[in-house]
Design a protein around this nucleic acid. Structure first.
Lengths: 249, 249
DNA sequence: CTTCATTTGTTCGTATGTATC
DNA sequence: CGATACATACGAACAAATGAA
């Protein structure tokens, strides 16, 4: 029990954290890209010299980070490396403490607003002159829904995605989309379907695109502020209500 | 075999993706906070009715997201829900394609700059009037290192952390810190230790804090731009070099 | 449509290292 | 130092999903 034992004791310290690292290194060495298949669990056991359980935990770790994507019955492929782990962490943080969730949610919304404002120049530059065929349709759908007092989550998400799609900085668009996901995942507990707010939000989307198309930076910034105004107003009033309710307990 | 069997077959479909969800729900139901211990693996096996391996994989998933923290030989506690998973994903994405890493890194640096600029009002408001006892010392240390041609990663990180610490929006500070981690993790392959750039960076830090203390918004923005200028200049020249080298191959 | 091989998903039993008392 | 509780790792076996023959 000399060789294997020594090997095992050496590995035992690092093995847990290094099996995932070895798989990452394997992806880098072979130059694999998102969608490319990686070796099966059995093959990884042989190549890395560890048990299947260890390989499975390493793969689970990487799958959580969207570095690989596991497909039952088929195999495992290199993942998209999206910001999904960020979303999951912050959503859980947002719903963790019922007395504090509004503060956490407001931080997310604040950051969304700051990011949208910070990207003003890039967005205006990308859309001034180029007509997007999809965005006007989305804006019309949102305004129609607002008139009927209906929400328009899908169109909202699509609007922001397409607005930021042409940016050079892909990461910025993904981050804004991630914050959108967090905010709409945490939001459902508040019903913010005031018709007037819906109309204002729909109009703000329309104004944002119109300003971007016409190259008007200042109008874009104003439209972004209007876009978040109903939401922030509600978050502030709700958090006051929560505070007074908490102090009553 | 009615109750348990039906329960087991129901679970079997969802079990894989829901064991982690059940643990999260357990944390929420019991109102646990970061640092509080969660049940041992054995207890979780009984409460959730799944095997030890499944519990372990679920815990590994949550540990990767920093929703729980595993302490060998002691137990598992609720984690800090930091942005560590975001860092790990983006670091790997940054080093994934050797020809493209500079583009990915530049996106991170661009976003850092946009965020710092977007937080101008909050930072100035938080520091105008209040003296921070640590920041001047960090600034002095950075300037001393710059004169000696030495890098000052530790002081740099501390500076940005403390600068954003007093903000109401904790998430913003954590996001900036996460981007700092990504950028310095991907960076080492470029050696950017030009003495002139070091001095400019050190001076920019000094200017940022001085502007924030004196409440000068415009000076703060200018200092932030100066702060990133050497890095962005290097990234642009390096990416040009990479492109011409790639076209040569 | 069925059969079959491949691959991942789940479980159990066992052994070992490690922290705490 | 010993005892206990816990996490870590391994291997074998069977279940479920997928895709191809």
């Amino acid at each position: 029990m000399n060789g294997p034992a020594a090997l095992a004791s050496n590995k035992s310290r690092m093995l847990r954290s290094t099996t995932a690292e070895q798989i990452k290194r394997l992806i880098l060495l072979r130059g694999l890209h998102p969608g490319d298949p990686i070796p099966t669990e059995t093959e990884l056991c042989e190549e890395l010299g560890v048990s299947r359980s260890s390989v499975r935990e390493a793969i689970r770790t990487l799958a959580t980070l969207d570095i690989v994507e596991v497909r039952h019955g088929t195999g495992t492929v290199v993942g998209q490396m999206s910001l999904a782990p960020l979303v999951e962490t912050l959503v859980f943080r947002g719903v963790l403490s019922p007395g504090d969730d509004l503060a956490a949610l407001r931080e997310v919304v604040d950051l969304r607003r700051s990011l949208d404002l910070a990207l003003t120049d890039d967005v205006v530059k990308a859309h001034s002159g180029h007509e997007d065929e999809e965005i006007p349709r989305l804006v019309a759908a949102m305004q129609a829904s607002a008139e009927n007092g209906k929400a328009f989550l899908y169109e909202d998400r699509q609007f922001h995605t397409r607005l930021l799609a042409p940016l050079t900085n892909q990461l910025a668009g993904q981050l804004v989309a991630a914050f959108w996901d967090i905010h709409t995942a945490v939001l459902p507990r508040l019903d913010l379907a005031l018709p007037a707010d819906l109309r204002q939000t729909a109009k703000a989307h329309s104004d944002m695109y119109a300003a971007a198309r016409s190259g008007n930076h200042e109008a874009y910034r104003k439209a972004v502020i209007d876009h978040y105004e109903p939401l922030l107003r509600m978050l502030n009033s709700r958090s006051d209500a929560t505070r007074s309710q908490a102090s009553r307990d």
